[in-house]
Amino acid sequence: MSNNAMVRKASSFEIVNHWALAVSFFVLAVSGYAFLFHLEGVGSVFGGFNQMRAVHNWAGVVFAVSLFLTIFHYLPVSLHFTSDDAAWFGKAGGYFSKRAAVPPQDELNAGQKLYYLVVLAAGVVISASGIVIWLRPWAKSGILLSHLLHNISFDLMVIAIPAHIYLATLANPGTFRIMVYGTVPLSWAKKRHAKWVQRMGF
């Protein structure tokens, strides 16, 4: 296969689901900041805080469902740690050197696995705590704890996700197209996921 040939990295379903996650997260994060810091300008974009609350809650549902749908593919992969992961960590993914060689990786490198696990954990916690705050299933107990967890998760996510965006765009040109076409040039894949390319027989 030519290095310029395209290999499929994500299914159409994954593309759609990822956008659902991305958009809902964006809405949630923006409205979340508006709640935290009383950003009335943001509120008015939503037509007021009352509407924004509804949007936030339902966007949360979209986010939670989408997040749930990711686990079938990504969770087993992300939980499968190998010696490659240690090696990857040893070189810090090659991000802090212009020359450092990163050992060949399978479908996801250690950073990506870790990222997924963090986002999944934070996503589960933020969704569950969000539902508790929203619906108050146990009347009085647990709300404050949920509030705390919701915000801890939020903080984690607003750190992790922008990093993810950077790494998937500017830091790795050509990556972003996965989210558009689902495919990447073979050269891109070989560089980043050599073992995967090999295993898949591209």
Binding site: G32, Y33, L36, F37, L148, N151, I152, F154, D155, V158, I159, P162, A163, Y166
Partner: peptide, 12 residues
């Protein structure tokens, strides 16, 4: 947590 939310974001 509140300050961390923007410091974190800004930091990243």
């Amino acid at each position: 947590l509140k300050p961390l939310s923007y410091i974190g974001l800004g930091g990243v």
